[in-house]
Amino acid sequence: MSVRAPDRHRTAALRITGGAACTSVSAGFAKLSGASPGTTAFLRCAIALTVLVPLSIREWRRLGPRPWRLMRFDLAAGVLLGIDYVFWVASIEDVGASISTVLLTIQVVVFPLLTWLFLGSVPSRRFLALIPVMLIGVTMAAGVIGQAEPGTDPVGGIVFGTIAGIAYAGYLFFMRQGGGQGHVVFPVCASTTAACAAAVVVGSLWTGIDLDLDLAAWLWLIALALVGQVLAWLLIAGALSQLAPQVSASLLLLHPVLAVVFGVIALHERPTITQLAGCLLVVVSVWAVSRTPRRERVSAAGA
């Protein structure tokens, strides 16, 4: 018996929400490890592969090989993900775990624009109108506008965070293109492999990769890999293609919201009032974008 479209959409939304909740602790785990951006990005992927490779082999045997035309999307996504990871950890060092995660929400703007540019999926007028508001909110959250948390570097944070967010949006775009084709684990494994390679290249050239870490650092990085990489992306990857780009990008907003809560409670970070106002502005803007127009809700109800 086939699953009804509303049920599929509901399941996909729940999966993305669960994945976003898992990734919300990623910045905190990365900060607690104390490792450099290159080291964190590399080990996050390398440790995750110890779980993903056996699972992907099992899936390969069950479903058969994944077509090369889809694997190209997986690998392209992974390269961008590796770049995202390195620059994101750099932004964590500059503005803290909670605010760096809010900066990553630049993908909420970039992801739908990519689908518009390359796939002709036209975003709503509401989305286009709210883009400036979202960008102002991101700038406030970083501390470029108003006051920043003492001891942080707002300019460096927003530069690195923006690069990470753009790369992250590209990752989501390519994963969405290759999703919904039967395989779930293998695309995540392939993209993580490519991300690992990209992290080695970028990390080695920039911050270096240091494997001489203490036990606490290794434990935090293992938690980051298993929760923020394996579990999170197994939940998210297979669901991206089942929802509209704006909806999936908006659901991923739970990620920065929970990250701010985690940063304040667990890491004792203290964003300023201006930064918190910027976070709120981003959240409200994306919520407004994700709302379904009333006429569409009425149409769906009568279908």
Rank of each mutant, 00 (worst) to 15 (best):
L281Y: 07
F118V: 12
V110F: 11
F42Y: 11
A223Q: 02
S26H: 00
L135D: 01
I99D: 00
E59G: 10
V201Q: 12
L130M: 02
D153Y: 06
W233R: 07
F127V: 04
I83K: 11
Q229M: 03
E59I: 12
G302E: 15
A142E: 02
G208V: 08
I273C: 03
C279V: 15
A232R: 05
E59F: 10
T39R: 05
P123W: 02
I222E: 01
L49S: 10
S250K: 13
C279S: 13
V110W: 05
G203K: 12
G146W: 06
V286R: 00
I106F: 15
S204W: 07
E269H: 07
V202W: 07
E93G: 09
I92W: 02
A195G: 15
L113P: 05
Q147Y: 06
F262S: 00
A190W: 02
F42H: 04
S250T: 14
V108P: 08
A301W: 00
A48R: 03
P37F: 03
M71H: 11
F29P: 02
R66W: 08
T272R: 10
P245V: 13
P132Q: 13
V95N: 04
W220G: 00
V133R: 04
I163P: 01
S91R: 00
P112S: 12
G82L: 14
R176N: 11
R66F: 13
A76G: 12
L253M: 15
R62K: 12
P271Y: 07
F29W: 01
L219V: 12
S290T: 01
D74K: 09
G182R: 05
Q147L: 13
F173S: 09
S100T: 06
A259H: 01
P245F: 04
G120F: 09
T17F: 13
T11V: 13
L43G: 04
W68K: 15
G161I: 10
F87I: 04
Y171A: 08
A21R: 06
L103A: 07
V282D: 12
W60K: 10
I99E: 03
A199L: 10
G238P: 12
T193K: 05
I92H: 01
Q177F: 04
V298A: 09
L49Q: 07
L254N: 14
I265R: 01
C189Q: 10
I106Q: 11
E93M: 05
A5R: 11
A167I: 06
S91W: 04
I106C: 08
I265G: 04
A97D: 08
R8M: 10
G208F: 10
A259I: 09
V286I: 15
T17L: 14
V79T: 15
K31N: 05
V257R: 04
V155Q: 08
V230C: 05
L114V: 13
L243W: 01
V185H: 09
A288Q: 15
G96D: 05
S33Q: 02
H255V: 13
S24E: 03
Q107E: 14
